[in-house]
C-alpha cells in the first residue's frame, strides 16, 4: 500500500469513526497514528468523556477482534493472560487463553488493579507474546492495547509505574467537548433513537498491517533524527524534570511523526510533524520534580516549553553539512 492509499484509507476510517465519536477528530487521528505506528495508547481523563466509546469504535471500524478487561482491585494476572487448567478428558494441563489473546484489547480503568496484575500486561505490550509455565505464546497480529485511566480518583487506585507507562506509545487527554460539539452529540443521539451507532468496518486486520507497512516507508532525514534526539535530551537536562524521556521515547516520537506525515499524504517527515506529536509521545515518560505538583505544573507543560526552546533543523541543508550558520532556524 502506498502512502497516498494509506492516507485515503485513514481518512475513510476517521470519517466513519466520527459518526460515533463527535467532535474529537484530532484525538481520533492521534489514536489511529498510534495504532499505525504499532503502539499502545493510554487514554487518560475523567469518566464519561468517551474513552471506552473510542476504543470500541476503533475495534469495529478497523475490523479487529475485540476484548475488554475491566480492571478491578481483585483481578489476578491469570485473569488477564490466561492460565493452565486440568483437562479431565485428556488428563493433561491445557492452557486457557485470557482476554489478552485478541487484536484490540480495551484495558478499562487500568489503574484500579494492583501493580502485579498491571505488570502481567508488560510482556504482552512490549513483545506481543505471553509466557506461561515456561512456554511462550505469541499474540495475534496486530495487537493493540487501548487503556483508559482515571486521573482524579486516588482511593482504591494504583498509579501506573514508570515501566508500565513507558510501554504506551502515547498518552492522550481528551478534555471536555466544545459546547457546539456537545450539542451536536446530543442532537445525534436524539435523532437516531438508539444507544449505539452501528459502525461499518472500513478495513480488516490485514489492511491495518498493510497500513503499518506503508508507515515504515515514510522517510525521515538525518537532521530530523538529530532534532528528535535534541528534544529527548532536553527532557533529561531540564531543571524541572527528575527523570527524562527514555530512548524508547525517541523511537516513539519518530514513529508517531511518520504516522502524522502519512495522514497528511506525505512520504517524508517535516519538523511540524514531530512538534505535533511530541507532547502525547513524551509527556507520560517524564517524571517531574515533586515540588512542581504544588505549582500545578504538568509534564505536558514542560514538554511544550521544551519544544518552544529546542532549535529546529536549519533551513539550508548545505549549512548543516558544512556546519556553518548561514541561517538559523
Amino acid at each position: 500500500m502506498t502512502p497516498e492509499e494509506t492516507a485515503r484509507r485513514a481518512a475513510a476510517i476517521l470519517d466513519e469513526l466520527e459518526r460515533a465519536v463527535v467532535g474529537r477528530r484530532r484525538t481520533l487521528e492521534l489514536v489511529l497514528i498510534g495504532i499505525l505506528a504499532g503502539g499502545h495508547v493510554l487514554l487518560e481523563d475523567l469518566p464519561g468523556l468517551g474513552k471506552t466509546l473510542i476504543a470500541r469504535s476503533f475495534a469495529r471500524v478497523l475490523g479487529l477482534d475485540f476484548a475488554r478487561i475491566q480492571f478491578t482491585p481483585d483481578l489476578l494476572p491469570s485473569d488477564v493472560i490466561g492460565a493452565p487448567l486440568y483437562d479431565q478428558r485428556n488428563a493433561e494441563m491445557v492452557f486457557r487463553p485470557g482476554p489478552v489473546f485478541t487484536q484490540l484489547l480495551l484495558a478499562d480503568e487500568i489503574n484500579r488493579t494492583p501493580p502485579k496484575t498491571q505488570a502481567a500486561l508488560l510482556e504482552a505490550m512490549g513483545e506481543g507474546q505471553v509466557s506461561v509455565d515456561g512456554q511462550t505464546r505469541p499474540l495475534p497480529s496486530p495487537f493493540v492495547v487501548l487503556a483508559t485511566d482515571n486521573p482524579i480518583e486516588y482511593e482504591g487506585t494504583y498509579e501506573l509505574p514508570e515501566a508500565q507507562l513507558d510501554r504506551f506509545l502515547m498518552r492522550l487527554r481528551l478534555g471536555y467537548l466544545a459546547a457546539g460539539d456537545e450539542t451536536d452529540m446530543l442532537r445525534r443521539r436524539v435523532a437516531r433513537a438508539a444507544e449505539n451507532v452501528a459502525l461499518t468496518p472500513v478495513t480488516d486486520a490485514a489492511g491495518v498491517l498493510a497500513m503499518r507497512e506503508s508507515l515504515e516507508r515514510v522517510e525521515i532525514s538525518e537532521d530530523l533524527l538529530d532534532y528528535v534526539v535534541a528534544i529527548v535530551t532536553a527532557t533529561r537536562q531540564d531543571a524541572q524534570v527528575q527523570v527524562g524521556a527514555s530512548p524508547r521515547g525517541g523511537l516513539a516520537l519518530i514513529q508517531l511523526a511518520r504516522g502524522q506525515a502519512l495522514l497528511h499524504q506525505r512520504d517524508y517527515v517535516v519538523p511540524d510533524d514531530i512538534k505535533q506529536v511530541a507532547v502525547p509521545a513524551l509527556a507520560h515518560r517524564v517524571t517531574l520534580r515533586p515540588e512542581l505538583w504544588v505549582r500545578q505544573v504538568s509534564a505536558d507543560d514542560v514538554v511544550a516549553r521544551l519544544l518552544a526552546a529546542v532549535p529546529t533543523p536549519r533551513t539550508d541543508p548545505a549549512a548543516v553539512r558544512h556546519g556553518t550558520a548561514a541561517v538559523t532556524g
Binding site: V270, P271, A308, T312, T315, G329
Partner: peptide, 9 residues
C-alpha cells in the same frame, strides 16, 4: 528572523 525553535510553517 525565524526563531530557533520555529518551523518555516
Amino acid at each position: 528572523a525565524r526563531g530557533l525553535a520555529d518551523t518555516p510553517d
